[in-house]
Design a binder for these strands. Structure first.
Length: 278
DNA sequence: AGTGGACCTGCGTA
DNA sequence: CTACGCAGGTCCA
């Protein structure tokens, strides 16, 4: 199937910028298990070619229905973001499956992106279902029930380390409250964040990632070590480390209601914006 | 409200 | 080859 794009979109950047962890580029196509099937996607100019997903799936997952031009125009409020927008135009936030997103970011603490990918892949291999595509094997991300009945000791065999009990706890929460994701969708940002951070292993940063990447809460501004450094050195010129609230609060004040989108564009340019040692 | 140490694991570097 | 440092934080004192 194919789709003619009438809106800005950069597939390569969107799937490789670190918001999601299961996309792999093989022979020019991006593959990932999404939901119950393997998606295979390629972009050539303004045409998207894909298999394994419907038009509606593609539009929804990649957020092609979101008015990106309006958002970029809205957040374009200083020189740094202006250049990030110029370099990364077409980067779109995905709408990730909520449970997978939650567990993935629980796995993201004290790890780099390859390390996160490894842990998520291990969980899928151990507890997901096998899928074949073009002779390759993929694994669905496990359902909450698949993980909820496991002991932390077993889950730890997926090399998730101290996160084992957090993963089991989050799985139990999702399994016992099947409507959890619908509930969070309907909540305000503040209420949704309070709900997520009540889970053990989910602090402000993880909650904001999940709210931004799975629940369309654009007020969520995940502050990791990179973003703290960028806001401290490039925006506030502060000497001492910024508290989470200070950095995120500044971002919302400065960038407005799409501050989360601004964060993602700055994050994509982190190597350039945050020189080591500053 | 704010600070400091412990915590799994994999990977890069000495 | 082994040792150590560090990486998309969170929890607990």
């Amino acid at each position: 199937m194919q789709l003619k794009l009438t809106v800005p979109f950069n597939l390569d950047l969107s799937v490789s910028c670190g918001q999601s962890f299961r996309w792999r580029k093989i022979n020019g196509f991006w593959y990932a298990p999404v939901g119950d099937s393997v998606w295979k996607v390629k972009q050539e100019g303004d045409t998207l070619f894909y298999e394994g997903a419907s038009d509606a799936d593609i539009i929804r997952y990649f957020g092609l229905d979101i008015p990106l031009d309006d958002i970029l125009q809205d957040i374009d409020r200083d020189e740094l973001i202006h250049s990030a927008v110029a370099s990364c135009r077409g980067l779109r936030l995905h709408r990730q499956p909520p449970f997978e997103c939650l567990i993935s970011y629980i796995c993201a603490t004290c790890a780099n992106i390859p390390g996160i990918q490894l842990r998520v892949e291990n969980l899928a291999k151990m507890y997901g279902r096998e899928l074949k595509s073009d002779g390759m094997t993929f694994y669905t991300f496990p359902n909450p029930e698949d993980l909820a009945c496991e002991s932390p000791e077993n889950v730890r065999l997926c090399k998730v380390g101290y996160r084992d009990k957090y993963i089991c706890g989050a799985a139990a929460y999702a399994a016992e409250n099947p409507q959890w994701a619908a509930d969070i969708f309907s909540m305000s940002y503040a209420d949704a964040k309070r709900e997520l951070t009540s889970l053990s292993g989910v602090g402000q940063k993880v909650a904001d990632c999940v709210l931004l990447f799975a629940f369309e809460k654009y007020e969520a501004v995940p502050i990791d070590v990179w973003m703290e450094r960028i806001f401290r050195t490039r925006y506030l010129g502060s000497e001492k480390k910024l508290s989470y609230e200070k950095a995120a609060g500044y971002a919302r004040e400065h960038f407005g209601r799409y501050a989360g989108y601004a964060q993602e564009y700055l994050f994509a340019e982190r190597e350039i914006l945050a020189k080591k040692g500053e």
